[in-house]
Computed example of a mutant assay.
Amino acid sequence: MPTVADTHIVNRERVQPTHANNYESAHGGIVMKWMDEIGAMSAMRAARETCVTAQMSRVDFERPIPIGNTALVESYAYATGRTSVRVRIEVSREDPRTGETEQTTSAYATFVAISDGEPTEVPELTVKGEKCRELRDTALAEEPER
């Protein structure tokens, strides 16, 4: 059975001018695309199947990511249903010269496992160790109403 730790993914994207809005920071739609892609990877690690986005809720854009900074996208699965995987996604801006980070965006998403074009059952997600428990408990405590 997959664990919360098995689904934890961290990815970086350098914010280029082609990713920017009129204010020289990452366009919200581009940030959401990165979040969706990395979130799906976490879901697939949990489901052991291809997953598609069913919904994304409470996307909070707290501050911009300027051109030249790195978008640090982090996600992990924290709960499963019969065919669904719930994922927490957080984005931080990272200064590529110093490594200094600051959270910019967060969201919750639900993905559905698909096999042969149909929803398919997913294994139960297990929690092993204090870090897994902390990640899961934090996500559950902050999860928006479903």
Rank of each mutant, 00 (worst) to 15 (best):
S106Y: 04
V52E: 13
I38D: 13
H19Y: 12
E102P: 02
N22Q: 05
E62L: 15
E142G: 03
E24H: 11
V59Y: 07
V4D: 04
R12Q: 14
E143R: 04
S25C: 04
A26L: 12
P123D: 09
H8Y: 15
S25L: 08
G28P: 01
Y108N: 00
V10W: 05
H27F: 15
A46M: 05
M56F: 11
R58F: 04
E100A: 05
Y78G: 00
A77D: 12
T120S: 14
T7G: 10
M56Q: 14
Y78M: 01
R146P: 07
T53L: 08
T3P: 07
I9V: 14
Y76S: 01
S106F: 10
E94I: 05
R58Q: 15
R88T: 04
T120N: 13
P64W: 12
F61C: 02
S42R: 07
A46D: 09
T3W: 02
E143K: 03
S106H: 07
A20D: 15
V127T: 15
L140A: 00
G117P: 02
N69K: 13
T110C: 07
H19K: 07
M1T: 13
V59T: 08
R58T: 12
H8T: 08
E49R: 07
I114D: 06
T120R: 11
M56N: 09
